[in-house]
Design a protein around this nucleic acid. Sequence first.
RNA 1: GCCCAGAUGGCGGAACUGGUAGACGCGCUGGAUUCAAAAUCCAGUUCUGGCAACAGAGUGUGGGUUCGAUUCCCACUCUGGGUACCA
Length: 753
Amino acid sequence: MVKSPCDEKTPLFTAKEWSNWGEEQQQAMLLRYRLAYLSETWVNWCPELGTVLANDEIKDGLSERGGFPVEQKKMKQWSLRITAYAERLLNGLNNIEWSDSIKEMQKNWIGKSKGALIRFDIHNKSNYIEIFTTRPDTIYGTSFIVISPEHPLISTLSTKKQKKIVSDYCKKSALKSERERQTNIKNISGVFTGSYAIHPFKKEKIPIWIADYVLASYGSGAIMAVPCGDQRDWDFAQKFNLEIPNIFRNIDVSKKAHIDKDCVIENSNFLNGLSINDAILKSILEITKQGLGQEKINYKLRNAIFSRQRYWGEPFPIFYKNETPYLLEDVDCVELPLVDKYLPTKKGDPPLARAKKKDWNIFKGHRMEYNTMPGWAGSSWYFLRFMDPKNNKEFVAKEKVQYWGQVDLYIGGAEHAVGHLLYSRFWTKFLFDRGFIPFQEPFKKLINQGMILGRSSFVYRINGTNTFVSAEQKNNYEVTKLHVDINYVNNDILNIEDFKNWRPEFQNAKFILNTKGNYLCGFEVEKMSKSKYNTQTPDELINQFGADTLRMYEMFLGPLEQSKPWDTKGISGVHSFLKKFWRLTHDDENNFNISQEKPSEKEYRTLHKCIKKTTDDLERFSFNTVVSTLMICVNELTDLKCNKKEIIEAFLILLSPYAPYMSEEIWCALGNSDSINNATWPKLEEKYLKQENVKYPVAFNGKMRFILELPADLSKQEIEKHVMQHPKTNNYLIDDSFKKIIIVPNKIINIVL
RNA sequence: GCCCAGAUGGCGGAACUGGUAGACGCGCUGGAUUCAAAAUCCAGUUCUGGCAACAGAGUGUGGGUUCGAUUCCCACUCUGGGUACCA
């Protein structure tokens, strides 16, 4: 038997059976093993728009565009079997220099948990329900079963009497998004199916309920409810008057569930007296022995849907014969065909279905694939192509990928933590498996630059209408909050004409204005993004201040890894710094003016202080503090009136990463023929930094009172003597005495009273 | 809801390993220069009281550890990111 990742429900078959199958049946079976496969998945379908919507295109259950209802629909989609790589994606985190927070997020996203799959037979029926639990030790505390509203056995399980209630409930939860279902934990809902399961050990009847806090996409879409050990189960039991059997020794479960694993099991037959961890092991052993289930490792990670019903995306190299997909063997790429409109067809097929046979550059079988690939098809591997961008035989030549290897440092936003950054790792792994690249991780080191935040503006559409209400009155209506382009908003007042012309759907929009006759927009500070219509272009700033100033200001804004609002108030400070440095090397008539004199000790000290700090800060990616260090250096050099070549030249190299144009220009004026980019980084000479005296802060009870300047090489005893002799010391001592004196050489003196 | 971050003057931020809280810049106030403006320069600028010297308070909130906490620990609040079709 081939040990290969495949659909869990893939049946076993023999070679003989295989060869007796027809071509289509073989293809269908192969799809169960392929990395890319077709599967039925739930999507957000908007009948009015005739298209599938992303969760973020839905606001309060209505489509953002137009405000139409959205429903859940099953659709055949390509998926990529990322779950086959779950374990490797998890282990690979140990081999990369990424921030702990991103690793943590990926780890939680993959969500590995050990537990058991347990079979519950159904009373008076031949079916059974499989549940996944991480706490098989609590099996004797199970008093009911809960299945998700999408569970395949729902129609079998719901009795005649319950049928109507059940189908109403399922329809209602189909309208809710998965997130809504998890968010509203205070809003407990559920219905009884009318059927009972048999407890595998106790052999007693326990009721089977349906509730939308159980998700179809996790585990097996069904749980054994243990109200004494799980708070959601406890709340559910409380609400619907279900039993709460206690299986924990000396623990009170009448007020809330007991979630901690710090206790001993009782009322549980063969598990009595065991600790939780021992009971988990023993219960799995017993479940396996009695054939009631097996040990199981479960991942929260789901296979990733890889098709989109949009026009702009890479077309699949797939064609169909009688709706069975075949892989195109041609070397040539399928190109996007011309279509009359970039819209779905009347039937609801994706835009590519509009193309006629002649519109495709390649056409085989009965039809081509209508779906296109998602954004992450490209974003998962584009960086590999940079190694060999003009190669038209393969995506990268062996010797080039051998030379360049993985990306050394990748700077990207934390918002990609579990999307792009996980997909890239996944793609890298399968490209490695197929022998295309010699490494398993795409990015050796990763730094998350903070997001630039923008101020978004909002308008409020009254649900089911095309009327927008001014922010002051939005609470009087059921409204949907929509982003509006900040270019149409001035001081939070909407330019209504611009807004109407923005999109055809707003052409006939109506407005409820405030008492001043204006439409007031709401606002929020959130990440700057095209989809939030809050972006600002730097073009004007470049025109006004130049690219060096903008570049340097971006570095000066704050720590690389911290998100910060885009605010250009302070940009003039960076600009005047560059002008100040320019004046240092130019006279009043703007003639280049540099001295060949040998620098003084003071001037060397200023320079080397700057070399030390800019070098250290650069290494820890602290660019904002580098900029202030450069500013301090220029301030000091200006005070010293220093325009000496040796100092200026070294300083230019320190400045060049931040203001490359200006430093190159002055570098050239100094008579250098090669670019400053090829200059050697100045070498720090510690001898210039040596200080003879140290300024000690003298604190009493931790509160700094005065500064005492002392020679750097004094012993603790000598320092104490000096402190005690200082006239100010007496002001703070009580009765001329103190409890203790703490002296940290070259740092601080603290006297405890 | 869940996972991950963050919170320090009027504003962006600094304090890297527990050791002077507020570096550097913006803004603001006053002054110099100028016919005037721009540009530039000088001085001041956490808050409260005080002419000042100085005193008290102070790093989201409440506790704790420590001679000493923005920094470490516990509990919370708020803000941002992600939550699987924005990429």
